[in-house]
Amino acid sequence: MSVLTPSQTVGPYFHIGLDWPDAHRLAGDSTPGTPIVLQGRLLDGDGAAVPDAMIEIWQADASGRYGSDAVSGFRGAGRAAVDANGRFAFETVKPGAVSDAHGTQAPHVNVAVFARGLLVHLFTRIYFADESAANAADPVLTCVPAARRETLLARREGDAWVLDIHLQGTHETVFFDV
């Protein structure tokens, strides 16, 4: 029998407790790696912006190391409330490939979506469209039906990497059972 404490929605007023200043900024000028802005919009089943949601990310450093193994000063975790247009943006560095017993994973950013209307947060990932070879061999991406993989691929627009997250609809983002 499970003893887990169940999840409940973050609700519409999470900003009171969870909105940290500058939590969307993971890396500074001295952080090793390629600085990137990771941005997008959160959209509902009608394609309308979700204005009351929170996005959290968790990523490896530029060398593919996590947390306390990562380069000094890089925690690898970020949090951002979306704005009235559903927009989120993180200032970070492009993560390196992560190697473990499952193989070598393509550079990716782990994403959790919290919102009013979601009783349990949603897990997804953001990959990078310019990593075709690494993406093709990624042990998580290869679990995803090929036709839906593009919902996880950020594309370069100027200085930013951009990916919209669709909660529903024909472009519904792939979410994970973790």
Binding site: D46, E172, F175
Partner: peptide
């Protein structure tokens, strides 16, 4: 309008 329709992978 917010709960995904596809089962999680």
């Amino acid at each position: 309008k917010r709960a995904p329709r596809e089962p999680p992978v």
